[in-house]
Write a protein that binds this DNA or RNA. Structure first.
Lengths: 226, 226
DNA sequence: ACCTGAACACCGTTCAAGT
DNA sequence: ACCTGAACACCGTTCAAGT
């Protein structure tokens, strides 16, 4: 009841894996991948660096857990939409999650058969099943979608990392388009040619267009059923 | 002519950007991404760490240059094959290059508009043009192919990194398949279901199947021309 | 112009010592 | 059982000093 009690906050909450991972996510979001340091983390948690090792085996596990925490949050497409719409919604969920937490894009590419990727793969796979893709082709279809999503994720993460914190999206695309226009016409004719299409360009729409390309390929190969 | 001349080797060759990048590639291939150290590199080049900074601005540039050196090597598909075959050949070239140098997979994902990626994008794009894809759709088509290739590249690099140096491919896939079979049936029905398809599984064939899916999607959307 | 190598400011991780 | 924080073995990078 004393005013001091009010202010004690969570300062004395016991350390836990949960709190550590939460603080790691915050740190990654705020200061980026280079900012996640055992020293910075322990300072934020008001302990010594060694304390963290009691709850977590090392930095690799910490990054994996942080990634998993974000991926577990991704919504999308479990309603009564068509399989195509469900896949689009899920893919967009991954896209937006990585947009909000660029480090997830980098991290996802680093954890092969691990749980964050498996979560997404499973969800894609169920929708592929719902598309009535023949069983022998389901793995290929789900893998292709997954790889595409990961590829875009990685690129977007890299782009965001390169970006000055203050430049916005269109400004950045404009700079890239200009750079492409100045390329050697003999070496880069195609890239120069599409540079202008880059200028007014919607990342999310472009991403979805790629998904649709793959979906078309998947359903084209499917034997037609009632 | 004296025997000692013979043995002098290249030990006294002056330091150059070229030699540095070459040694970096060797180091990356031999001891992996964690093994590329300015100390290890300078030891291999018989100098001090500071000498390298005279020719290269830092580690980031070094990694980019090493990646570029490998990517510049990728052959493929400039013969008189069909555009589809040319794209498959090029994609396979990237796939094999990353198989031989796993660190390239990681690195490619980190350099967004940089030259190694641009090289590949340009080559894909020309083949997309040859496919007679309408101009407005060319960027989307080339980007989708590029993202897919990068996605697979990243995953493969991650897999190789996780692998014990002595386990071979099929052994690894078997382990993954077994792990997937032991997943919770309620949470991972699809993944469990396709686990067996993983067991006798050809990475390259699967990769190409994904390329074909996208190619089908691209040509399906194309207006038919004589 | 180019190289040397000690020194600086960091890392992740460990571990004896505390409670 | 859990936390502390100094210490260890590394990093990338800089820079005065050499040739």
């Amino acid at each position: 009841m004393a005013p001091s009690t009010r202010r004690a906050d969570r300062r004395q909450e016991p350390l836990s894996r949960e709190r550590i991972v939460g603080a790691a996510v915050e740190l990654l979001d705020t200061v980026g991948e280079g900012g996640l340091t055992f020293r910075a983390l322990s300072e934020r948690l008001a302990t010594g660096p060694g304390a963290i090792y009691w709850h977590v085996t090392g930095k690799a596990e910490l990054l994996a857990a942080a990634t998993d925490a974000v991926v577990a949050t991704i919504p999308g497409g479990d309603s009564d939409a068509t399989p195509q719409e469900a896949i689009r919604a899920l893919a967009l969920g991954v896209f937006d999650a990585i947009d909000a937490h660029p480090w997830v894009g980098t991290q996802l590419a680093r954890t092969p058969g691990q749980s964050p990727m498996l979560r997404i793969f499973e969800r894609i796979g169920r929708h592929v099943q719902a598309l009535r893709v023949p069983e022998a082709a389901q793995f290929t279809a789900a893998s292709a979608l997954m790889s595409y999503v990961l590829g875009v994720a990685g690129q977007n993460a890299a782009n965001t990392r390169t970006l000055q914190p203050n430049t916005d999206r269109t400004e950045f695309l404009d700079a890239v388009a200009t750079a492409w226009t100045e390329l050697d016409p003999d070496q880069y004719p195609f890239t120069r040619n599409v540079a202008d299409q880059l200028r007014n360009h919607d990342d999310r729409a472009e991403f979805l267009a790629g998904i649709d390309l793959i979906l078309t390929g998947i359903t084209a190969g499917r034997q037609s059923t009632g």
